[in-house]
Each structure stands twice: as structure tokens, then as C-alpha cells.
């Protein structure tokens, strides 16, 4: 009886001190998760997620205040990576509905004011003052910031056209599941 009580007390004491020591010596400053998540985000500060920038979005993600599917430029790949990082399951349906878009400059309306390419977070718009601007579609994330600043409303977002190189078979839909 006495032996049992003593040994349990000793065990509790030893483990308790171990925890105490660990909390003192293995203390972590700040939330490392937030930092790691920010590294994973595109970093274009485009704001499509509704947060003022990637850092704010990372904080929201780290504190489980935002869904992992929040980042349109990151797409499915990022959502899956974030879900793995945060250990949550994801509902990809919200992402799959969104068709990838790219900015398109209506050349007839562009006056070459240069506001759009100054605003573009990924330098996807090129052109000089008084020249028509062109979109580098590989760099465009369709963040729509250029639309906000364009004085002649000559920019619009268009779906990225499917080509023979990018087309692939659709996922089969099975009738019996209906």
C-alpha cells in the first residue's frame, strides 16, 4: 500500500518536473506555424482572400479562422498542402467551381496611363507610358487589382482558354451513384 502510494507520488513528481523543465527550456517565441504558412502562400499580397495580405491570411489560417481553400492563386495544390500542414480535411468543391482566369486588356480602350502595371503585384502587365499595355498571362494571378485602378475600365478577367496541351479527360460521372 505504502509502496504503491510512494511510487506513484514519485512518478508524478518526476513527470511533473519534466514538464516544467520542458516548458521553460523548450519555449517557442511566437507562433511558428504562422511563419511556416506564410512561406507557403504566394506572397503576392493580392488580397483575393479578403485579408489585407499574405501575412494576415497566414495568421488567420494558423488560428483556424480561415478555410484552407482561401487562396485562389494557390489553387488546389496549395489548399491540399495547407490541409496537410494544419491536419484538417478539405472541401475542394468551392475551389473547383472557380475557373482559372487571366487579365485581358481591351486595346481599343487602353490609354497607356500606366496605373495598372504599377499596381500589379506580380509584374504581369507590361508597357510604357502612352503605350498599350499587355498581360503576361503566365504571371497573372487574376487578382483584379488592375481593374480597380484602370480609369477607362479596359481590363477584364477572362477564363484561360483550354488548348490541346492543357486539355485532359474529365472525371467520369457514374450514373449509378445518382
Amino acid at each position: 500500500m505504502l509502496a504503491a502510494i510512494t511510487s506513484l507520488m514519485l512518478l508524478g513528481f518526476a513527470l511533473g518536473s519534466l514538464l516544467g523543465l520542458a516548458s521553460r527550456y523548450l519555449k517557442v517565441e511566437g507562433n511558428p506555424l504562422q511563419k511556416e504558412i506564410e512561406e507557403m502562400l504566394p506572397g503576392s499580397q493580392c488580397g483575393q482572400c479578403g485579408y489585407p495580405g499574405c501575412a494576415a491570411a497566414a495568421e488567420a489560417l494558423a488560428n483556424s479562422r480561415a478555410p484552407v481553400t482561401l487562396c485562389p492563386p494557390g489553387g488546389v495544390v496549395l489548399a491540399e498542402a495547407l490541409a496537410g500542414k494544419l491536419g484538417v480535411s478539405i472541401d475542394l468543391s468551392t475551389l473547383e467551381e472557380k475557373q482559372p482566369m487571366v487579365a485581358f486588356v481591351n486595346e481599343g480602350l487602353c490609354i497607356g496611363c500606366g496605373r495598372c502595371y504599377k499596381r500589379c503585384p506580380t509584374d504581369a502587365l507590361v508597357g510604357g507610358p502612352k503605350q498599350i499595355h499587355v498581360v503576361i498571362s503566365d504571371s497573372c494571378t487574376a487578382c483584379e487589382k488592375c481593374i480597380d485602378v484602370c480609369p477607362t475600365a479596359c481590363i477584364e478577367m477572362r477564363p484561360i482558354p483550354v488548348t490541346l496541351q492543357t486539355w485532359h479527360w474529365p472525371k467520369p460521372s457514374l450514373a449509378y451513384t445518382a
Binding site: P42, G43, S44, P73, P121, T122, D138, S139, T141
Partner: peptide, 11 residues
């Protein structure tokens, strides 16, 4: 996305 990140950082 990696390219976007690189461009954004460069910018």
C-alpha cells in the same frame, strides 16, 4: 505559384 512568389518578392 512559385513563379508568382518569386515575382512578388522581386517586385
Amino acid at each position: 505559384q512559385k513563379e508568382t512568389k518569386r515575382l512578388a518578392e522581386q517586385r
